[in-house]
Design a binder for these strands. Structure first.
Lengths: 202, 202
DNA sequence: ATATATAGTAAGCACTTACTCACCACAGGA
DNA sequence: TCCTGTGGTGAGTAAGTGCTTACTATATAT
């Protein structure tokens, strides 16, 4: 029961972490500073020692998320050596699994977009476009080498990401998982097969 | 400048309309009853003459949206006589165009899902599942008659809806339309072609 | 015209919100 | 041992918040 005295850095990081969790659960406007303080086990006042305004917590979250390239590079490492459908399978499985295990960031991003905060904007301008670029360039390469049909690589990339991300969103946020509980690998395989071969019988 | 005296019904409908617009712009928690009153040009008290609690405005919106089958039947009528890819083209174009013209309902639904209100839940349990059923059954029919490959019709339906709805969402809510402005018909054709033929060169 | 029902209001209640300020506790160098 | 810097708090404040009350204005039926 020893109440440790945190250093400023530790406390700062802890507050951001708690705030992120609560914002993703109840939105920026739906979360009170009292609540953050309570969850962090401190008084409200010390939040305002670290962050001049509640809004500043959002900026701190952005910094944290955009500097944490962990997930991104983790995926890249898993893609190494993969070819053909396996590249797409890996991406889809990674995204669906990640959001299934912890939908925090997806929710935070949605709240941010709806409430008009900068987080979603910055995320879109950097990470989202980046990922889309990566996929579109991969597709463009496959088109150039003749294994994919000629079409707009960016729209194709968005089609694929759309299947995957909308599936995650409906499962985790709209609660579709109450009605549909297909194993991830099966879903992924169907998505990738549709993306490669289409539905039409040859 | 004659300030007309509304009947109870007229006023009720007007308040719901204003509330829906504001909730979709700023969320339930982000909208105050004062604001609704101001926008409707009335005093706050009369909102509470019609709705006992602020929460009841949500129920009224649900009723309005779920009883307004206009859009649904409008789409069904447009689908009559269509075959093959045109069915899917029509659905995709309808959804993308609708959300482009007025993203109000999409936003409201997202807020509702995130804030944990009943609207999204009821909508999912009725309209969303209904639409998914329609599409899945259509796909199942195509599978049975041999023009589509054998696969899980519901996952396939969600793949298609995912492409379309995630595209709308990223365009209108995450602001992707600042970066990508492809004509709707082109996007729709690419999506439907991918869904039918896939990306692989034969 | 008068009565009555109902649309509508001004003002405020009890409570919550983000944010502040005067103050305390204690590790560590002098 | 006494300072001093820093982590931390209790008790506020002004500006909202949902919701209520006691009241007024006006359309309609008699």
């Amino acid at each position: 029961m020893a109440k440790k005295r945190f250093t400023a850095e530790e406390r700062y990081a802890q507050i951001v972490k708690v705030a992120m969790r609560l914002f993703s659960q109840k939105g920026f406007k739906g979360t009170t500073t009292r609540e953050i303080a309570k969850e962090a086990g401190i008084s409200e006042a010390i939040i305002f020692k670290h962050f001049a305004k509640k809004e500043d917590l959002y900026s701190a979250i952005i910094d944290m998320q955009c500097n944490d390239k962990q997930g991104q590079s983790f995926l890249m490492r898993r893609l190494e050596g993969k070819e053909g459908r396996d590249v797409f399978r890996e991406i889809a499985a990674f995204l669906i699994q990640m959001h299934q295990e912890d939908p925090t960031f997806m929710k935070l991003l949605m709240f941010s977009a709806l409430e008009g905060h900068k987080l979603s904007d910055i995320f879109i301008r950097t990470r989202a476009i980046e990922t889309l670029d990566y996929l579109a360039k991969h597709i463009a390469r496959l088109i150039k080498q003749g294994s994919f049909k000629k079409t707009d690589a960016y729209i194709a990339a968005r089609a694929f990401m759309g299947m995957v991300l909308h599936y995650s969103m409906t499962q985790e946020i709209y609660g579709m998982k109450r009605f549909f509980r297909t194993p991830v690998t099966k879903v992924v395989n169907i998505f990738v097969d549709i993306f490669f071969e289409g539905m039409e019988a040859h």
